[in-house]
Design a protein around this nucleic acid. Structure first.
Length: 772
DNA sequence: CGACTAATACTTTTT
DNA sequence: GTATTAGTCG
């Protein structure tokens, strides 16, 4: 019908599959978008196309993503094509849930429309308060299980709970207790942001109808990362499925090969089963890759095609050329650091920049060896996402003060700051306040004067006089401070905010930090420990300065902070422009790309962590796939024979993922074939690389399999009479060596000091054979 | 009540 | 090795 020549430029720029996806209408659409296939472009173009060409009202479009960054990018790019797209609702799943919940808060008894969102830490604190006989760490674990249950849309009374948890009765009890306690605070957790809106849509026909009338088009990005609860919410939002049934037009975009959040409840089945759950679904595959050389995609494909239950898809590179990825088999972490440094140096020599290079690892702890060594070599680096700003102690303290101002029922916040910095109010006093706040109303008392139940500030004021000594004065001063801040906040009610010349919330935060004593407390802590806590508090003041000094401004700020943890990274001094190598976990690289990528730590027990097959292994393979497909020009893989972990040294086997790559699609890195593990297809062990304490076996941690007594022990350097040096005890010599079945040799040492001690060299790095 | 020491754990983490 | 937390002592 319409000739290509008639297409407006923003559509003409698309390839045929992309165009098909953009113009599709009718039943549901599943876009299977491979890495680097222009997925974001398709989604944003589709939004613009609907508004501009199909007469769809932007307000009736709902687009959900998983990260704020993705939401922002989607909005900006759609609006760049068609400005009216600015009015579409483009949010993360959770931010949509919060938005929906605040407008319908009255439907949930006890829910405060100004609720704050509890994170894992707050959740654990809350549960610990409710069930103090469980250790705090136990509470963390249980709360995690509760969050998983919520991800799967399970309620405390769901029969399915029995299938999902080892001890369903315990789970049921804990979950119910937690829920009750959480409802009492008026706050929610992340799971509630999905679960509660879904419940309302299911149970309230009028709300469901109204919502479905509003959103006629629903788009979901990174659909492979959705969990069961999110799927349920989506289905309720869309309404009756199928053409002509009156439901919304549903378009989901994702890549089953990039599903890497199973451990948080993401359910690959959502994308795998989408076509059968929504009959009449069209599928469009985007398999043209605009990012990487084919040589890189070949490796990616070899790896991921071993997984079962894929929808099937093979990327083809649009960029011709490129050399084969390099495999570096290295002795240990030091060699790995050295190798990465050389990769950087070569990139620079070839006219590139440090920021072209990304070093990827599975666990955050692995960044340490790079962080230690790079400064010495003059290599600038930035670590992505390691210490999260808003989870730092001092920041959480200040935020807890703010939460309490916003919602005086916030038990977790209250407990956190009522005595911080120390003002003599101990746990006993806090319990008295809690008791008073939630005690059933005393029938004898004057009912009218009684404050609403659960107001912890009011309760504090009531009981302060009955306490004595420091507890009394401390609690009183805490209440006075909180009251003063609340008053100051309310004085700014309806204030236009800093953008319009009104007062900024930052002022209030500054006063809070100073007057609460947090500033003074951390000033001295900084001096002792050399930390940056005060600077972090300044940063928080800074971030708050964008919001109005009013109750509404505070609520907005808190929600922004809770739902967008990346907020502070942008605000803090770290400039994106700085030319530095990126150190990053593989998970954090999703959606990113780099000219040069080094995937490190390809060792059994580290990556993959476990090799027992099944979903877990497949997920790690997908993670490897994600890591590989970040590379545009150059890909390097490294694997170490020895790795230090938890302060111990382990001998490792090369990752099975390496054996899943055909030999001719990868080449050994220049003169670094130092790794040689027995039985490895990558060469045989060269001459001994010098004596050092080590033991055989895998990273097993404490309850790992008993490490097999490998040849490593037999060739160990330990023998009677050997001179040794110990980091703490100094020089000595070996008195005797005795074999042990599971822990490697036991060495008895006599030191110059006369001290005699026993060591399992496998478990210590402090003991070394004497040098020289 | 709070500061110290000892025990314990320790993937990944968009929200 | 490092961080956090539980428990003990003053």
């Amino acid at each position: 019908m319409t000739g290509a020549a008639a297409l407006p430029p923003y559509l003409a720029a698309l390839n045929p599959e992309q165009l098909e996806a953009v113009r599709h209408e009718g039943g549901s659409l599943l876009i299977l978008a491979g890495a680097g296939s222009g997925k974001t472009r398709v989604v944003t173009t589709k939004i613009a196309y609907l508004v501009r060409e199909r007469g769809v009202a932007p307000e009736s479009i709902l687009a959900v993503t998983f990260t704020n960054k993705a939401a922002k990018e989607m909005r900006d790019r759609a609006a760049a094509i068609e400005p009216r797209c600015e009015r579409a609702v483009i949010r993360t799943f959770h931010s949509f849930g919060a938005w929906f919940l605040r407008r319908n808060a009255q439907a949930f008894p006890g829910l405060d429309p100004r609720f704050v969102i509890y994170d894992d830490d707050d959740q654990a604190t809350l549960l610990h308060a409710a069930m103090p006989h469980y250790a705090r760490s136990e509470c963390s674990r249980m709360v995690q299980a509760i969050s998983r249950a919520k991800d799967y849309g399970l309620e405390p009374d769901s029969p399915d709970l029995s299938e999902a948890f080892a001890d369903p009765e315990l789970m049921r009890r804990v979950y119910a207790t937690y829920e009750e306690r959480l409802r009492r605070t008026g706050n929610v957790d992340f799971g509630d942001l999905i679960r509660l809106p879904a419940r309302l849509l299911r149970e309230d026909e009028a709300v469901a109808l109204r919502t479905r009338q509003r959103f006629r088009v629903i788009l979901v990005d990174e659909y492979q990362d959705s969990n069961v609860a999110q799927f349920e919410l989506l289905r309720l939002l869309a309404g009756p499925a199928g053409p002509g049934a009156g439901g919304a037009y549903l378009c989901v975009v994702g890549d089953d090969d990039q599903s890497i959040y199973r451990f948080r409840g993401a359910e690959v089945r959502n994308i795998l089963d989408f076509p059968s759950i929504f009959p009449g679904t069209s599928i469009v595959r985007l398999e043209r890759n605009y990012r990487s050389f084919q040589s890189i995609l070949d490796v990616a494909h070899q790896v991921v095609s071993r997984n079962s239950g894929r929808l099937g898809k093979e990327l083809r590179a649009e960029r011709a050329g490129g050399s084969r990825p390099k495999l570096a088999l290295l002795a240990d972490q030091d060699a790995e650091v050295e190798y990465c440094a050389r990769v950087c140096a070569r990139r620079i020599k070839e006219g590139g920049r440090l920021s072209d290079v990304a070093i990827l690892y599975r666990t955050n702890a692995q960044s340490l060896s790079f962080e230690k060594e790079f400064p010495r070599r003059g290599i600038a680096y930035r670590v992505v996402g390691a210490l999260r700003f808003y989870e730092r102690e001092e920041v959480k303290d200040a935020l807890a003060y703010l939460s309490l101002l916003s919602n005086p029922r916030d038990e977790v916040a209250f407990k956190r700051v009522a005595n911080k910095p120390a003002r003599g109010v101990g746990d006993a006093s806090l319990e008295i306040v809690l008791e008073a706040a939630f005690a059933p109303p005393d029938p004898g008392a004057e009912d009218d004067a009684a404050p609403p139940p659960g107001d912890l500030l009011a309760a504090s004021a009531r009981v302060a006089d009955s306490l004595k000594g420091r507890a009394r004065s401390g609690l009183a001063s805490f209440v006075a401070l909180a009251r003063r801040l609340v008053a100051e906040l309310e004085a700014g009610s309806g204030s236009p905010g800093p953008a319009a010349g009104g007062a900024a919330l930052g002022e209030l935060v500054q006063v809070l930090v100073e007057d609460s004593g947090l500033a003074e407390y951390h000033r001295s802590q900084d001096e002792v420990a050399g930390t940056q806590k005060l600077a972090n508090l300044d940063e928080l003041v800074n971030a708050a300065s964008l919001y109005a000094k009013s109750p509404e401004g505070l609520a907005e700020f808190l929600e922004a902070v809770e739902l967008d943890r990346s907020l502070a990274t942008a605000a803090s001094g770290e400039s994106e422009a700085a030319d530095a190598v990126t150190l990053i976990t593989m998970h954090n690289t999703k959606g990113l790309e780099f000219p040069v990528v080094v995937v490190t730590g390809l060792e059994q027990g580290l990556f993959p962590r476990e090799d027992e097959g099944g979903e877990e292994l497949e997920e790690q393979r997908r993670l490897f796939y994600v890591a590989i497909t970040r590379a545009k020009d150059e890909l390097h893989l490294t694997s170490c024979t020895f790795r230090r972990l938890h302060g111990r040294l382990f001998e490792t086997e090369p990752s099975r993922f390496l054996s899943e790559i055909s030999k001719d699609s990868i080449e050994p890195a220049d003169k670094v074939a130092q790794r040689a593990a027995p039985g490895s297809p990558y060469g045989s062990r060269p001459g001994s690389s010098g004596p050092r304490p080590y033991g055989g076996g895998s990273y097993g941690g404490t309850r790992g399999r008993a490490a097999a007594a490998g040849p490593a022990e037999d060739r160990g350097p330990w023998r009677a009479g050997l001179g040794v040096y110990h980091e703490d005890y100094g020089s000595g010599y070996v008195l005797s060596v005795s074999p042990s079945p599971s822990s490697g040799p036991l060495v008895v040492v006599r030191f110059e000091t006369g001290k005699e001690a026993r060591f399992f060299p496998r478990f210590t790095t402090k003991l070394e054979p004497q040098r020289g």
